[in-house]
Design a protein around this nucleic acid. Structure first.
Lengths: 148, 148
DNA sequence: ATTATTAAAGATAATTTTGTCCTTAATTTT
DNA sequence: AAAATTAAGGACAAAATTATCTTTAATAAT
């Protein structure tokens, strides 16, 4: 569904948010290992998530530094991560990739996809980063990288 | 959601099915123009859809030749197109891309995504190629490439 | 038979995505 | 102040995806 970049972005955000909720900052090293993603590639993604436009994750250099997410940011919908990675179109556009598909001039799948798209969008827009990160639905202690 | 290849594959299949339902064969040229995809790339995709494993579209070389879909094939679910392109995982796997995510060891989004995934899968598995191609939901005479 | 038309197949190229490496800057600890 | 630790940023490389081009094979019409 999403690109690797966006998958990593979501996983990283959730990982950091979990640690931040117990007031822990985490290093790129730890994040990368925790989410099962290449270290330097993870670094690049974290830059995108922390830049001026996105401001989803925060960071501090130097020893005892690392990444964290403010309480304010963690109250925003998880959707902003997808948006920051520029992949909100994945959820919002036509299944057949038609640029001119809409309610007025629908493609063959438009009607059946419309409701699903709405739910999909809701899944990202109606749940905050914090809610997702600390979801009770996910009972396992370590979320990612279990098979390492 | 899907790669360009799969989008083109779905569009091409629908386009051919529509023409086949009025007993018309169509050339690569016509298909490519009709769906708004590069000609030679479309040809490659049609090869994938017509090969021994897939057998979704049929073709005949030479003048008055072209592509068509048999009545039998058009009764199969549109899902087989996605499958032939090797992208059924897009619909069937974890949103976060975790290989070990399942009901027993769910990721943070698993529960909320589960129902959506089921609907998404149903959209492709419960509708035949013919149903999608000749859907009454789509009223516009030309499905694709309207802005050319 | 020859020519024209069409798909099949293979080679190559461009672009995008993914991944790695190295240097620099910031910050803390000693 | 010096050393150590961490993120930031830029350059580069590998792989995958998307796109193009050329030749060959099949088939029909002339």
């Amino acid at each position: 569904m999403f690109s690797k970049s966006t998958e990593y972005a979501l996983r990283a955000t959730i990982y950091i948010a979990r640690q931040s909720s117990i007031h822990k900052k985490v290093s790129i090293q730890e994040i990368a290992e925790g989410i099962g993603a290449p270290k330097h590639f993870t670094a690049k993604i974290l830059q995108q998530l922390s830049n001026k436009n996105a401001q989803i994750v925060s960071s501090i250099s130097g020893p005892s530094g690392g990444f964290y997410i403010t309480e304010e940011a963690s109250k925003k919908p998880i959707y902003i991560v997808v948006e920051a990675m520029g992949e909100n179109t994945v959820i919002e556009s036509c299944v057949l990739g038609l640029p001119n598909c809409n309610d007025a001039t629908p493609c063959s799948m438009h009607k059946s996809y419309k409701g699903i798209k709405k739910e999909l969008l809701g899944m990202f827009k109606n749940r905050t980063i914090n809610e997702v990160a600390n979801s009770k639905d996910c009972l396992t202690p370590v979320y990612f990288n279990r098979n390492k």
